[in-house]
Design a binder for these strands. Sequence first.
DNA 1: GTTATATTTGACCAACTGGTCAAACGAACG
DNA 2: CGTTCGTTTGACCAGTTGGTCAAATATAAC
Lengths: 200, 200
Amino acid sequence: MPKTKTRIQKKNEATILAAGLEVFSQYGFRGSTLDMIAEVAGLSKPNLLYYFPSKDAIYKTLLAQLLENWMEPVYAIDAAGDPVAEILKYAKLKLKMSQDFPRESRLFTNEIIQGAPQIGEVLHGELRRAIADLAVVVDGWVAAGRVRPVDPYHLVFSIWSLTQHYADFDVQVRAVMGGTDPMIGAEQHLEDMLRQLLSV
Amino acid sequence: MPKTKTRIQKKNEATILAAGLEVFSQYGFRGSTLDMIAEVAGLSKPNLLYYFPSKDAIYKTLLAQLLENWMEPVYAIDAAGDPVAEILKYAKLKLKMSQDFPRESRLFTNEIIQGAPQIGEVLHGELRRAIADLAVVVDGWVAAGRVRPVDPYHLVFSIWSLTQHYADFDVQVRAVMGGTDPMIGAEQHLEDMLRQLLSV
DNA sequence: GTTATATTTGACCAACTGGTCAAACGAACG
DNA sequence: CGTTCGTTTGACCAGTTGGTCAAATATAAC
């Protein structure tokens, strides 16, 4: 029974996952090493492997946690709500997640760029179904004349791409903007863009 | 004098760079190995190192080529042209580059995610200046009432993020869209979005 | 054809890689 | 205080890694 977990167990597992996220999100699975993760975690390599059976297991645990957090807001979009408000709510939440959890965003991007070897099935299954459902909702809004005619899929890609951009390309964004904090204008621009795109 | 290059030299260097692009764009610098590149190139590892002094040299050569191709269209934006047309021209060109050279796009994204260790200076230098100049142009258009009030920096990020998304997240885009070719609606959506955002 | 030069490779190296294991250490409980 | 069980680690291993080198082979020049 994997019920009983010591405080030490819980603490160290959390420490290892945090360190793994730090390293994997920057170098991807192949480019990361257990030594790097152990160093960041402040533990020895054999100690890492006492809590997780393999490098792969750490990586998979991180991805599973991530997917859970990312799917939820999609389901929270309410077909009965105000269209623009619902889309804006989702987009702003995504932006905030990029701000607050940039490492998670980069971890995901790394996994996708490498061809999604771990989460390919989720993309083709749960994610695809969820976005198909969302597309039906958006198409309904369009048919009812409540939003401008827009392709639901490319609308979603617009939101995903721009919000993730602030996390994944943070170093570029900051380099280009100089001293200005990118996040100040980001939400305003996102809202403006979506309102112009969607408002009838 | 490094003038004379045999045809074999030219052919093999091109082969190696193509193989390096294939591998580096998927696994990043750290996650790629000379053995993988050699295998894709169809050459032996020592033969690779006969043409390039190191793994690093292959990577740097690829990035240098890339930056050159990416900066050019920015400079081609004409302050004297029609604002919406100029922005659309740039955005569509970027989209086409993502379609035609997705590996280059992924190589760049990998480099940025890893903190831009190689091209950080270019980002803070040439790129920053180029976008600052562009911002002046866009601000001028806004002041003249020729486009809606828009933050030039976030406008650029919108274009970069969405166009790169189709290359970097190709596997996710295709998974979500099922059999439908993403590129069919992509340009239409990009144009629609920018027109709505910019048109007065 | 012979010579000079460019190309290719098998064998090799030291450092790094993911992972194992037995032994040592630590805390809690009776 | 001694036992038990969870924790930590040094030493180790086989495979991989970036890179070297001398020797072998192909190509070009004369």
